[in-house]
Design a protein around this nucleic acid. Structure first.
Length: 607
DNA sequence: ATCGGAATAA
DNA sequence: TTATTCCGAT
């Protein structure tokens, strides 16, 4: 079964119709390659955070083809697949840079996947490298009776030899090359017997906790065994250790900040109620980002996995700021703030920018879809001063809503395009489970950002990445008003139902401006560029806040927690000097590459 | 190079 | 559903 032999956790595989068959997805594969030094001449992190360059498109294609047993694979095809990620917002293209794409790692990832270690070990890793999942972090403590028991007390979790390294090593085998579906070939993980072996020899010796199973560890991180993040476990080359290469030094909440990385989102509340973390930090972190979280309709459910995490409530930044200042220390654990949803800070009431809604044929083959629909409105477009969406029938019918594509009429930039996808046909329960919350499959954008100034994509577009979003929990049936036009003018805005004081976490706050409701039954897909602009704005705000409290925070940081200062390399001087150091052991690298490739061929023999 | 529609596969 | 394949457009 899959239980024992996966190179990647389940979520990394696309569920295939056929039960036993799951295949690695391209982006995981890419991440995989990016992790391995052997392939650094083929593909490597480079440039901004999350950015990577395919140095040898043909080779990458070849490798991909090998993995998928598609000998006819070429870059043209591969790139098409990559382009499909654009709308999924897993990737986007770095314009102007050949063969350069950018992963969508971002703060949302952090919010959703706090276990990702934002720290760094200081190894010469490119800024563009993503953070690694890690049990690291000083705030993190393994509860007794968890796999942590198996860890030596002194083990520095952050080090390459840390838990995740072990996990990763275990998970890693055979991941680079098999035409398998993850059900068969990769089953040698636990015992390290199988075909992989590439770096196994080296790893073997350093294997720290042989008894830790991927599963157990994984569950530690993710109760449901659903990792949101590419814990893609490719063991690093040789004994170097798998964490060696891609440690990201640079995942900061505010990329433009001078801080190497932000204080603590690295706190890793991964153990459910067992973990410990600095509430203050977490709070700050969350507060700094909840806005965007909400804007992106991240369901508070996402936090269910982290009981101690205060579910962010919509606040105004200024307010947050104040609050932060006030509460110096103690935290009331699970208490939540209940703030009035406020407009997005930087919402400008721009002139109305009409959208036109392209109705898209609803996906066929869905239950209620066919039979019940009186069918979608036939308007191909409509202008909306505000909330005209309701006229689309959204307000009255929860089902049978057509897919609509929203795009600003006035804006030539196709990047402003917004797509609204109806999901009314989905079973609300489907999204109920947390898995979905982490699922990369359901991009959700939000209303067009009013900010008109940032319409031109800067060449140096800040690397404000977005992540993939998940639809929020559906509101109690029957309570859905939907789009309500707001008295104010402004771009069409969506409104969400005010939270029921009771149990249901508050739905999304306005994404912006005097925005309102977002039909919970809608999912949005939007291009990054727009998100980025949006994020950029938020970043500004963050920075503002940060700046004012910088000193204070500095103090807190040092006092309240050691971050990664203690155990391992102090804040590494990470940035810079990676690309330059790339052409290091060209020889060795190539050798490794050959080796790997050879092995690849070997393992693929059964294609 | 890059993009994305269309048809199709698994 | 996620690619794969093909391909015309930019």
């Amino acid at each position: 079964d899959r239980a024992r032999g996966f190179a990647f956790p389940d979520w990394a595989y696309k569920p295939e119709s056929s039960p036993g068959s799951r295949q690695i997805q391209l982006w995981h594969f890419i991440l995989e390659l990016l992790r391995k030094e052997e392939y650094h001449d083929v593909i490597a992190w480079q440039g901004d955070y999350g950015e990577f360059v395919i140095k040898d498109p043909d080779e990458v294609a070849r490798l991909w083809g090998a993995r998928k047993c598609k000998p006819q694979m070429n870059y043209d095809k591969l790139s098409r697949a990559l382009r499909y990620y654009y709308n999924k917002r897993i990737l986007h293209k770095t314009k102007g840079k050949r063969f350069t794409y950018k992963f969508n790692f971002n703060k949302l990832v952090l919010v959703n996947y706090p276990f990702i270690d934002m720290g760094s070990t200081g190894s010469g890793v490119p800024q563009s490298a993503p953070p690694l999942p890690s049990a690291a972090g000083t705030h993190f403590r393994f509860p007794p009776s968890t796999p942590s028991d198996m860890l030596s007390p002194n083990e520095d979790l952050r080090s390459p030899g840390g838990v995740f390294s072990a996990v990763a090593r275990r998970m890693a085998r055979g991941s680079v090359s098999d035409c398998s579906d993850g059900t068969s070939v990769n089953s040698e993980i636990e015992d390290g017997n199988g075909g992989g072996g590439e770096e196994r020899g080296g790893e073997r010796g350093s294997m720290i906790h042989p008894r830790l199973s991927h599963e157990s560890l994984f569950r530690m991180v993710h109760p449901d065994n659903l990792s949101p993040f590419p814990v893609s476990p490719l063991p690093g080359p040789g004994g170097a250790g798998l964490l060696a290469p891609p440690q990201s030094p640079a995942l900061s909440l505010t990329p433009s900040s001078h801080l190497p990385y932000t204080p603590s989102p690295s706190l890793s509340p991964m153990l459910g109620s067992h973990f410990s973390f600095n509430p203050e930090e977490m709070k700050r972190y969350l507060q700094a980002h909840h806005q965007s979280v909400y804007n992106y309709h991240l369901s508070p459910r996402a936090f269910l996995h982290y009981p101690n995490v205060i579910i962010p409530q919509p606040h105004r930044l200024a307010q947050d700021k104040r609050e932060l200042g006030e509460r110096g220390g103690a935290e009331r654990g699970g208490e939540r703030e209940r703030g009035e949803p406020l407009p997005h800070p930087h919402s400008e009431p721009p002139h109305l920018s009409p959208f036109k809604f392209k109705l898209q044929p609803p996906p066929l083959g869905r239950k209620q879809r066919d039979g019940s629909q009186g069918h979608h409105p036939r308007q191909s477009s409509l202008s909306s001063g505000s909330g005209s969406l309701s006229s689309s029938g959204l307000g009255s019918s929860l089902t049978g809503l057509p897919k609509i594509k929203v795009e600003p009429i006035s804006d030539i930039e196709s990047e402003e395009e917004v797509e609204v996808t109806d999901i009314s046909d989905e079973d609300p329960d489907d999204r109920g489970d947390e898995y979905d919350l982490f699922s990369p499959r359901h991009p959700r954008p939000h209303p067009h950002h009013p900010n008109g100034t940032s319409s031109h994509p800067h060449p140096h577009d800040e690397d404000l990445d977005e992540d993939v979003f998940k639809a929020p929990a559906p509101p109690p049936p029957g309570l859905l008003p939907f789009f309500t036009s707001h008295p104010h003018r402004g771009p069409p805005t969506l409104k969400s139902e005010p939270a029921e004081p009771g149990d249901n976490p508050p739905p999304q706050p306005p994404a912006q401006g005097q925005t309102k409701c977002i039909p919970l039954k809608l999912r949005f897909k939007r291009r990054w560029s727009e998100d980025q602009r949006m994020e950029a704005m938020e970043e500004q705000d963050d920075k503002k806040v940060r700046g004012e409290k910088e000193r204070e925070r500095e103090t807190e940081r040092n006092g309240g927690m050691q971050e990664n200062g203690a155990g391992s390399a102090p804040s590494p001087p990470p940035l810079g000097g990676y690309e330059c150091s790339l052409p290091l052991a060209q020889r060795g690298v190539n050798q490794d590459l050959h080796q790997a490739t050879a092995q690849l061929s070997l393992e693929n023999k059964d294609c």
